[in-house]
């Protein structure tokens, strides 16, 4: 199995005045292509910080992160942005949608920053296909603020997959949803794994973690088992 993400000695320290908070410490892990990995642990143990480190949203204070064997520290800001656009697809707990844009225009966002911008017709096809894949056919031109919680998370998933990223980083994707919607969303995410995507899922719900092929349990910023 090809290794997509490999971290060694990864640390993130937040400074607030004289106070140092070790959000992630001595984190080493390896995630292969097509795997589904759950990161679990109690609130404040550093799960979100870790997924942000892996997704190039924040920079580590120390340690090394290899993405497809390339050291992320060597990437320029532009290359980091390109990786966020092409390698990763992000799904977050509160959906991170632009409320006054339609589902269509929210899903369009990653395509605006693609290196190779195709024809408008192709772009439209990709957006409609992504929305169709998450079951939102017919709701393309409804504004995000007018959609239900489950529908909004579906839009977020469509946005995460529209650019065909290899890794889906999902941070508590069902945290704001009722159980029925949560089940549907998890079904969607696992269908992506079956289609060959890698899934890194942050959750404090053990039942959801159990659906993944591997779990990393965290406490106080460190992995306690994996």
């Amino acid at each position: 199995m090809q290794v997509v993400l490999e971290a060694s000695g990864l640390e993130k320290v937040y400074l607030s005045g004289d106070n140092k908070t070790h959000a992630v410490r001595e984190m080493s892990l390896s995630i292969g292509s097509g795997e589904s990995v759950a990161i679990t642990g109690p609130s404040g143990c550093g799960k979100t910080t870790l997924i942000n480190l892996l997704g190039l949203v924040i920079r580590p204070t120390q340690g090394q992160l290899l993405i497809d064997s390339v050291d992320s520290a060597t990437l320029t800001p532009k290359q980091r942005a390109r990786h966020r656009n092409q390698v990763f697809g992000y799904v977050v707990q509160d959906f991170a949608l632009i409320e006054d844009l339609t589902a269509y225009h929210n899903v369009e966002i990653p395509l605006l920053y693609r290196q190779k911008r195709g024809r408008a017709k192709d772009k439209k096809g990709l957006i409609l296909a992504a929305l169709d894949q998450v079951g939102l056919k017919g709701k393309e031109f409804v504004k995000a603020k007018n959609l239900s919680g489950g529908e909004r998370q579906r839009v977020a998933i469509a946005r995460a997959i529209v650019n065909s990223p290899r890794v889906i980083l999902a941070d508590e994707p069902t945290g704001s949803l009722d159980s029925k919607s949560a089940k549907e969303i998890m079904g969607l995410l696992h269908s992506l794994v079956h289609a060959g995507k890698t899934l890194v899922l942050v959750t404090h719900d053990q039942a959801l973690a159990d659906q993944c092929s591997r779990q990393i349990r965290m406490a106080d910023g460190m992995a306690v088992n994996s």
């Binding site: 949203v57 800001p77 532009k78 942005a81 390109r82 966020r84 656009n85 092409q86 992000y90 991170a96 949608l97 632009i98 966002i109 990653p110 605006l112 920053y113 693609r114 946005r159 650019n163």
Partner: peptide, 16 residues
């Protein structure tokens, strides 16, 4: 700011 962060999460650079 939140909207800018969303754009940057999905690949926008500071230049954009």
């Amino acid at each position: 700011l939140r909207e800018y962060a969303i754009h940057r999460l999905y690949g926008a650079t500071l230049g954009d």
